[in-house]
């Protein structure tokens, strides 16, 4: 693809800046949703509290801890590639990947149980509860769904990183892709850090 020499440059700092800018757009993307959440919750305080009781705090806490651990392991993988420990890096990325998938499986069962009870946008059951509950679950599915989509993208990215580290394309002198994947993964973590109290702890 390279048409001219400029494409070959490697600029760690520049690539990282690009990733940070992307993270800012993600923050604003979810920021819009947080504004919607804040306004809805302000107008339907009691209903949100009641609806929040429908969510399982244990699963929520469990998933939070899973994401926090995965964040730590991916951060460690960046340290280990700098220390030239290739195999350790792959193992740490592998742990991150497994944790991400466990998170998704939990989410799947959590959503599945809710949908079985008819708690899904547009159903009669939900509408009978009233406006506040309808909005709460609407936001719940929309925000956690969008977050889960980001997790899925993260899983793909982490898998690609594992292959690249394994093949030696990412090494102690060229690891900005791994670092950027890490930044992305921490962002996903931060968003969950806020989603967790807003949905699970609001009861």
């Amino acid at each position: 693809m390279t048409e001219h020499s400029v494409h070959d440059h490697y600029d760690h700092e520049g690539s990282k800046l690009g990733m940070w800018l992307f993270i800012f757009t993600e923050l604003l993307f979810f920021g819009g949703l947080f504004i919607v959440y804040a306004v809805m919750r302000y107008k339907n305080e009691t209903a949100f509290a009641l609806a929040g009781e429908g969510l399982d705090v244990f699963i929520g806490t469990f998933n939070t801890i899973i994401l926090l651990v995965s964040s730590a392991t991916i951060a460690m993988s960046i340290s280990s590639i700098q220390m030239k420990k290739k195999n350790l890096t792959v193992v740490l990325l592998g742990i991150t990947l497994v944790l991400a998938i466990v998170f998704l499986i939990n989410k799947y069962y959590e959503w599945g149980a809710k949908i079985e009870h008819g708690l899904f946008p547009g159903t009669e059951t939900l509408h009978q509860f009233g406006h506040g509950e309808t909005l709460f679950f609407g936001l719940y599915y929309f925000m956690t769904g969008l977050h889960a989509l980001h997790i899925i993208i993260g899983v793909v990215l982490i898998a690609v990183m594992m292959v690249k580290v394994h093949k030696g394309k990412i090494h102690e002198d060229r690891f900005v892709q791994l670092e950027n994947t890490g930044l992305y993964w921490h962002l996903v973590d931060i968003i969950w850090i806020f989603l967790f109290p807003l949905f699970y702890l609001i009861a």
């Binding site: 757009t25 993307f29 920021g31 946008p121 909005l135 609407g138 929309f142």
Partner: peptide, 21 residues
């Protein structure tokens, strides 16, 4: 731009799933 992105997505969701935002 991301704010309008998410807003348009919410309208899409509204149209498809009638969420109610």
């Amino acid at each position: 731009t991301p704010v309008v992105g998410i807003t348009l997505l919410m309208v899409v969701a509204e149209k498809v799933l009638s969420i109610g935002f």
